[in-house]
Amino acid sequence: MFQLNKDEKLIEKALGGSQRSWINLVKRYEGLVYNYCLRMTFNPSDAMDLMQEVFLATYRNLPSYRGQNQFKGWMMRIAANKTTDFLRARGRNPLHRAGEVSDDSYNSPEIHQAHSHHHDPAEDYKLEKTNQQIKKVLDRLPDEQKLVVELKFFQHFTFDEISHQTGTSINTVKTRLYTALNKLKGYSEMQNVM
């Protein structure tokens, strides 16, 4: 409750022109949004692009935020919209890319840059490998299914919230999740993750 209250205060100050408050607000959620973007896009560079678009749109829409301690859900609705636009604009259908996703991105400069402050490269590799395998699983799904899986399994939103965020009915959300589960049945890559 305290946490949520803090959001509201930061938003109020940010709307009053305080950039420091805006920065603090961003810092509270950028980890969540960035990791969300990592799962929804194809590489760290795309994730950064998408994350910045999400926060830009959040900033621009801040005056229309209605309060009621719903900032995270409200922001993720913007994120869902931006993600849909982003993936559509890139014209990348994950189905066509399954299997070719980022085996070589272990060596991408972005990853090394992003984690250059880590000490143990072997640990980094292991960490990246787990995430890459999770991405491989998610990338088997079409965007709209991937999005509801993300919002339900990774972010634990309620069906009501996901329905609002994706602009679809609760039944549609449930059907997409069910279809996604069926699509992933027997996919061996999942065993590698655990």
Binding site: I23, L38, Q113, A114, N131, M194
Partner: peptide, 20 residues
């Protein structure tokens, strides 16, 4: 399995970026 998989995700630090 999907829930278990979601817990296996290793949270990544955000690279430095310009927030404003």
């Amino acid at each position: 399995e999907l829930y278990q998989m979601s817990h296996a995700w290793q949270s990544q630090n955000v690279p430095e970026w310009h927030r404003t």
